[in-house]
Design a protein around this nucleic acid. Structure first.
Lengths: 216, 216
DNA sequence: AGACTGTTGTTACCGCAAGTAACGAAGCGT
DNA sequence: ACGCTTCGTTACTTGCGGTAACAACAGTCT
């Protein structure tokens, strides 16, 4: 029978094929945006639709695979910044800058990752499963940051819960500010990084009321 | 001819109709999620598709109109919390709590607002228009908060730019934390509010390193 | 060699949703 | 009674996700 070697060869071949397909899909998504059709992707890969479906199940599968690639890449870059041997403020600034540089360099990729097409399961699920789809990247980043915070920062009791809240909150802050900044480019990256770090460093609490503000 | 009175009556009638249609659409979207079809919405309103298209142009138009309603409602609630005559920390906490209570009470609405179906204009626009569609609510919230910060908090020079950065950043923090919290319910709303406010109050800067953290 | 099996690929189709004519039937001013 | 606009319909086109059903090739067992 000789199944094992055979199977191994075929599996590795299949994986190589999968990578080719993913790279083709990548090109198309980068060119046409997240609305790229399966037909277009198949054409770019030089094949036809059913093959894509054999490899990835459905469109969500393909997009998940694609997202995982980019998410992994971005995450490893961020981990490097997070784990650097520097003081906390420097690490925060460098992580923010790494993220912003990444989305600045490849906005199409970023857009695809952040706004994946919603499958919108029409099943009559009663409970609220809000955000199950939507943005797995943000969730992963949030959890990642939460563990880093939990293992590095002393937050007293309830450290676990607090770290997760902060992880997701900080990631959301970075994401929203980055999204807005990328759209309007109202300032330099350096200024954005410094302002966000200042925010996290408590300047909101320290700042005084405006003298000419609404008097009360 | 008697155009003016006639025109006025018809316009107001059209607006009333529009409101009915929007309410029907609301019911359907709340029931079926953001993937609701135009046919379903029309059926709920007791009419057929083309009328919807006459009123709203395309699906994006309907969804935009729907989103505007809810966004306006949420925004006015938040404005009340932001403008309350209390000290800054209390205002921040009450605003966070208002937002979280809103998304907790009507997760389907929230989900629709945050993850609207992407139109994905296939036009070959060169530049990156990331985030133009996607989440107008977040942008509006960010700008709103930015103006409140700018007119109330003294941030020294560059106050304008900094306030906008903080506005979008804080809104993003609130949003991401809320999204995650709504999905996993890892803690009470009160704890979430307090932890986020603590984060904004500089506890990240104040906290010490963990004694048992990775030694470096 | 020749039948057997599995992978790779195709064409042709189904279902469904967005969006669009083209046409019918009211109200209302002249 | 005749137009004119508005509200409404049915019936269609287009395009996409997804799926049979079938064709061809490689290696495998007897």
């Amino acid at each position: 029978m000789e199944t094992t070697r055979q199977a191994a060869r075929q599996r590795s071949a299949a994986e190589g094929r999968r990578r080719e397909l993913l790279e083709a899909a990548d090109r198309v998504v980068l060119r046409d945006g997240p609305g790229a059709s399966m037909n277009a992707i198949a054409a770019e890969a030089g094949i036809t639709k059913p093959i894509l479906y054999r490899h990835f199940g459905d469109k969500g599968g393909l997009y998940r695979a694609l997202a995982k690639r980019h998410t992994d890449a971005l995450l490893s870059a961020l981990r490097a910044a997070l784990d650097a041997p520097a003081d906390r403020r420097a690490r925060v600034e460098s992580t923010l800058d790494t993220y912003l540089a990444a989305i600045e360099a490849r906005p199409q990729v970023y857009r695809f990752l952040m706004h994946p097409s919603d499958d919108a399961a029409p099943s009559p699920e009663q409970g609220f499963d809000v955000g199950r789809h939507s943005a797995p990247l943000l969730r992963r980043l949030g959890e990642e940051l939460a563990t880093v915070i939990a293992e590095r920062v002393d937050l007293g009791p309830d450290s676990e819960a607090m770290a997760r809240i902060w992880g997701h909150g900080i990631v959301g802050m970075m994401h929203a500010a980055g999204d807005w900044w990328l759209g309007e480019r109202p300032c330099s990256r350096e200024q954005l990084v410094r302002s966000l770090a200042d925010l996290l460093w408590g300047r909101l609490a320290e700042a005084g009321d405006r003298a000419d503000g609404p008097g009360f």
